[in-house]
Design a protein around this nucleic acid. Structure first.
Lengths: 348, 348
DNA sequence: TTGTAAGCGTTATCAC
DNA sequence: GTGATAACGCTTACAA
């Protein structure tokens, strides 16, 4: 393989192999459609010229980019990074490359970057969550773009999606704590605007409590962006209440870790004085604070299923529009409420 | 904005605006080059047709994809996810989209996915680390692909890069522990094959110790893949030695957390009986184990600088070939070696 | 300032 | 099986 001045193109290969460009293209795309002899000649020519197909030209002519777009909130959060990683791996295995964009929880940015991806040319799109600007859905509809929503389930049934039932997960987690005897609940939630995951989790907690006739008072719900600092601040505020909660449900792992850190700072023992629970990916956190009870979301499977779903659409296979993935409650130690004496001490 | 049967193209816009396709193209690319009146007509037409440019066609004609490729080991590791996130954000702000690929620490896969990115069409490439298959560098050279290496510094001076001096970081961390009085060192390193980051860190520890006449015995060095389990196993093995170390240097944050978790399991107190230190992004870990001393690598800045470096190349600006980013030693509590009595107890 | 028209490097539809 | 050749949708000299 020499190093020519300019990148070889299809016609160069054709000339060297003494065939037409059509044959070279066929030899590359459908090798079984050309005679073994010519195939070999073409392959030799390709090798000796170091020929690499020009993606844009190929995309223009074939109307296929073999590229999939993914729009996620951020990669700063390990949970989204993991999902994205799984997507990338699955698509790569199928011969697709991933075009990535983040919107940082900003709906307008999401529309903008999605448009950019479509413009750049993608065969399909993976979106995170179900709450999106109508304009975005309109774009997809207009361009007939295959897509799949992930993480949450679309209740309207209009959109293909593969995800988790966040409300049910919250229900499960809350019921567990109720069974343990907790009655004083609070929640440090993620920002619920444009985020049905955060919303569903909060709602799930509310619903589980309501079923037992317990209300989640306004001062017991704190809504903050996902960050360690938010977890700290949230917990501090909650414990400053006249009646501090015995169970603090955190919207995700980062918030939970922040909350635990703040407990350490304040000298509040976990889980003896307060149970901290959370959602999402908590291996690291739970390793360091064994008392932590969480709902685990299998992000690897999510990425795989979502990618497979989109690939199936692209190859014209029929697929269930909606696919729910099971989540897992991880109880790692006691989550029982503190004894009366401890509670009183915490209240001081 | 109506919803036409087929996607509008440039010629449709031209017809509606009663101008030529050339003018539409100009109105889109260099708005200041067309008369305000025509510009407005074109923009109206674009809007009313819901026109979105066809990226492949644009790329074919202009020889620019406005797409940057990034090849990272994995997104499973928060540190790489953060860097990738920073890259994505910076490129997005400059009008570039990110094509992402992972190689999972496999050199052959790296060559394969890089080739795929080039074929797909990218204007530039970001690579993580300096150790790459010669074949990969050959590809870049042949196609004159602008690129930048990140995270590490290229000692040969041949490649544009922006990164950290991993060896110096290890030197700094080790010297700190030496000053604290530690003499019994061990290291749980990442796999050093094709990974100059892991290699440089291990070497840095070795060099710092050698300067004081201390050797890192073979049984005091454990090389494992980056995972919590590795950290656990590594620590367990090290502490089972006849003479357990008082300072365990971990190749990255995940290993350090695993090591700390194992200390908890074994009932070894950190940092009273053993100091655990590490590299990389440790906010979460250090929050939960305040004694942890680490070297922090500013991944955000890394992504920004790396992206800026590549963008500068693309716009023909001159840039320093090599750029080193400072790292920061984070001492969060005592790292002093255990007293003799404690040491003896740990040895039992 | 605007229009004409020649590519850009493939794929795909035909004939042969 | 293979070869001409017309798209594919846009950019960009060059001309007007």
């Amino acid at each position: 393989m020499k190093t020519p001045r300019k990148n070889a193109k299809l016609s160069d290969v054709a000339r060297l192999a003494k065939v037409s460009t059509a044959t070279v293209s066929r030899a590359l795309m459908l090798p079984h459609k050309v005679k073994p002899g010519t195939l070999a000649r073409v392959q030799d020519a390709v090798r000796s010229l170091g020929y690499v197909a020009h993606g844009a030209a190929r995309a223009l002519a074939s109307r296929r980019t073999h590229t999939i777009g993914a729009v996620v909130p951020t990669l700063d959060n390990a949970i989204f990074a993991n999902t994205t990683h799984a997507l990338q791996k699955t698509f790569d295995a199928a011969g697709y490359t991933l075009l990535l964009a983040c919107h940082e929880f900003d709906a307008a940015v999401e529309v903008r970057v999605t448009r950019a991806l479509i413009e750049r040319g993608i065969d399909g799109l993976v979106l995170l969550g179900t709450s999106h600007d109508p304009q975005l859905y309109a774009m997809l509809g207009q361009r007939q773009m295959p897509y799949v929503l992930t993480w949450a389930l679309d209740t309207s049934g209009k959109h293909p999606c593969v995800g988790f039932n966040n409300r049910a997960a919250a229900l499960q987690l809350t019921n567990h704590l109720l069974e343990q005897g907790h009655r004083e609940f609070a929640m440090i939630s993620g920002v619920t605007v444009n985020n049905e995951r955060a919303r569903d989790r909060l709602q799930g907690v509310r619903d589980a409590l309501a079923a037992r006739g317990i209300k989640l008072a306004a001062e017991r719900v704190i809504e903050k962006t996902y960050s360690l600092a938010s977890g700290r601040e949230g917990l501090r505020a909650l414990m400053a209440n006249a009646r501090p909660p015995t169970a603090v449900m955190c919207g995700n792992d980062v918030l939970a870790i922040g909350a635990i850190a703040e407990c350490n700072t304040l000298g509040i023992r976990v889980p003896q004085q307060v149970s901290i629970t959370g959602f999402d990916d908590m291996e690291i956190a739970s390793l360091l604070s064994p008392g932590l009870t969480t709902v685990h979301f299998p992000t690897l499977e999510l990425g795989q299923f979502a990618a497979a779903h989109l690939l199936a659409q692209l190859s014209g296979k029929s697929v269930a529009r909606q696919h729910e993935l099971p989540v897992e409650l991880k109880v790692r130690g006691t989550t029982a409420p503190p004894a009366r004496a401890q509670l009183r001490r915490a209240q001081r």
